[in-house]
């Protein structure tokens, strides 16, 4: 647990706090963007989180599920999520409109070690919905640009139509203080102007990096981790500077319900951010 982060509900960790959907729109056919604000203004501003942490979102009557926070703590007050429609809770969320009320509790998990990442090069590799947690750390680095050295992003999606935050990332591509490479596995539109291929094919395009002072971050579908980590290792990035955020089924978020237990740790308390070093020492992580 990150010491600086205050929980919304201190006495009873299972009590969701009312929050209002401020904006929601489709990012792709089955992924929606949600911007929410905790109704109680004091609590909204005291919701202090770290990039890489997650929150439990409730739709009363449908249930509760964990979601990565996609916004950055450098822009306090509003929380953003990108959510794929896959189950009961997300189906109910997709039916909700702006101004509707949801419940939220958190933030939970360890998040990225942003303090240790200061004054280092940051390499972010994202696949598909893995953008959700890594957008938080990317925007955090860009908002505090002078605190980090080179920032690079390799972004992969299946098809152009499945790329989330498409306009945002194309706009970021124009920034001079960010090295950004975008790819899709296949282009069914014939309009894609960037790279075609899986995200690992973007590695040769990276400018030479200084491995010992690079933090390499990855998030994507389960199958992606092994391949991307192999590339990081080829680049000689130290094992404890290779960071990944992992998905697990979770119910409580506070280390009780047992669903996300791996080895002797709980993903919700000790994760969801792990190093490659953790992966080597704890089986079942990826």
């Amino acid at each position: 647990m990150n010491g600086e982060n205050k929980q919304l509900t201190i006495s009873n960790p299972f009590l969701p706090e009312p929050a209002r959907i401020v904006r929601t729109y489709y990012l792709t056919e089955d992924v929606k963007f949600f911007q929410v604000r905790v109704v109680d203004m004091d609590k909204a501003l005291s919701f202090k989180y770290c990039p890489g942490q997650f929150a439990m979102i409730s739709v009363v009557g449908a249930g509760e599920a964990p979601f990565s926070i996609s916004s950055t703590p450098s822009r306090p007050g509003l929380l953003e999520f990108c959510i794929r429609k896959v189950g009961g809770v997300t189906n109910a969320l997709f039916r909700m409109k702006e101004n509707d009320l949801i419940g939220i509790r958190g933030p939970y998990g360890n998040g990225f070690p942003v303090e240790r990442m200061r004054d280092k090069d940051i390499l972010i590799v994202v696949g598909g919905l893995g953008t959700a947690p890594l957008r938080s750390v990317l925007l955090y680095c860009l908002d505090n640009r002078d605190q980090f050295r080179r920032v690079s992003l390799l972004h992969g999606a299946k098809r152009p139509s499945e790329m989330i935050f498409r306009e945002e990332f194309f706009a970021l591509k124009e920034r001079e203080d960010l090295e950004c490479h975008l790819a899709v596995d296949g282009d069914d539109t014939g309009t894609w102007t960037e790279n075609i291929g899986v995200v690992t094919t973007l590695f040769p395009k990276l400018k030479e990096i200084d491995p010992s002072s690079t933090y390499a971050l990855v998030c994507g579908p389960p199958v992606m981790y092994k391949f991307v980590i192999k590339e990081f290792v080829k680049l000689n990035i130290p094992k404890d500077q290779i960071l990944m955020t992992l998905e697990r089924r979770m119910k409580c978020g506070v280390g009780k319900c047992g669903h996300c237990a791996i080895d002797y740790i709980y993903t919700c308390l000790d994760g969801p951010v792990f190093t490659y070093w953790d992966v080597i020492h704890m089986r079942e992580l990826i």
Partner: peptide, 21 residues
Amino acid sequence: HCFDINDEIDSSSPLKGKRIR
């Protein structure tokens, strides 16, 4: 000690229900 959390609805309109573990 593992548990699940789910919502149960008694009435959908007006909404009334409970969260159970």
